[in-house]
Simulated assay, not measured.
Amino acid sequence: MSATVQSSARPAGLRRSAEALAATLPPLLAEARHLAATVQLGEHGRRRAGMGDEFWQYRAAHAGDEARAIDWRRSARADVQFVREKEWQAAQSVHLWVDDARSMEFTGDPKRQAKADRARLLALSLGVLLIRAGERVGLADGIAPPRSGEVQLLRLSEAFTRPAGETDYGAPQARAMLAGSRAVFLSDFMGDPAGVEGALAQAADKGVTGVLMQVLDPVEEAFPFDGRTIFESMGGTLIHETRKAGDLRDRYRARLEERKERLRHLARTAGWLFTTHHTGDPAQGALLWLYAALRKGS
Rank of each mutant, 00 (worst) to 15 (best):
S2L: 06
S7M: 08
S7T: 13
A9Y: 01
A12N: 14
G13F: 00
S17K: 02
E19I: 14
L21V: 14
L21M: 11
L25I: 10
P27S: 07
L28M: 04
L35E: 01
A36T: 13
A37T: 03
L41F: 04
G42D: 10
E43K: 07
R46L: 13
A49N: 06
G50K: 05
M51L: 09
D53L: 12
Q57S: 10
Y58S: 06
R59I: 09
A60K: 09
A60T: 15
G64Y: 11
D65I: 11
A67H: 09
R68H: 09
I70V: 15
R73S: 09
R77G: 14
R77C: 09
D79F: 03
V80R: 10
F82A: 00
V83F: 04
E87D: 03
W88N: 14
W88D: 15
A91R: 11
V94G: 02
V94F: 01
H95F: 06
H95Y: 03
H95C: 03
L96G: 01
D100H: 10
E105N: 13
F106V: 07
G108M: 06
K111Q: 15
K111P: 10
A114L: 05
K115L: 10
A119G: 02
A119M: 02
S125Y: 00
L126V: 13
G127A: 15
G127F: 05
A133E: 08
A133K: 07
A133P: 12
E135V: 15
A140M: 03
I143H: 08
P145Q: 05
P145E: 05
P146L: 01
R147A: 00
V151M: 00
L156S: 01
S157R: 02
E158Q: 14
A164N: 09
A164D: 06
T167K: 04
G170N: 01
P172K: 02
R175N: 05
A176L: 07
M177F: 04
L178T: 14
G180S: 11
G180V: 14
L186G: 00
F189R: 04
F189I: 10
P193G: 10
L200G: 08
L200H: 07
A201F: 12
A201E: 13
L212V: 05
M213Y: 00
M213K: 00
V215I: 15
V219H: 04
E220T: 06
A222E: 09
P224A: 05
F225P: 04
D226Q: 11
F231S: 08
G236N: 08
G236F: 06
L238M: 03
E241N: 08
T242V: 15
T242M: 10
A245D: 10
D247A: 15
D250H: 12
R251N: 04
Y252V: 12
E257A: 12
R259T: 14
E261L: 11
E261V: 11
R264I: 09
H265Y: 08
A267S: 02
G271I: 15
G271L: 12
H278G: 01
T279H: 04
P282G: 08
G285D: 13
L288S: 04
L288I: 07
W289E: 02
L290E: 04
L290F: 07
A293V: 15
L294N: 02
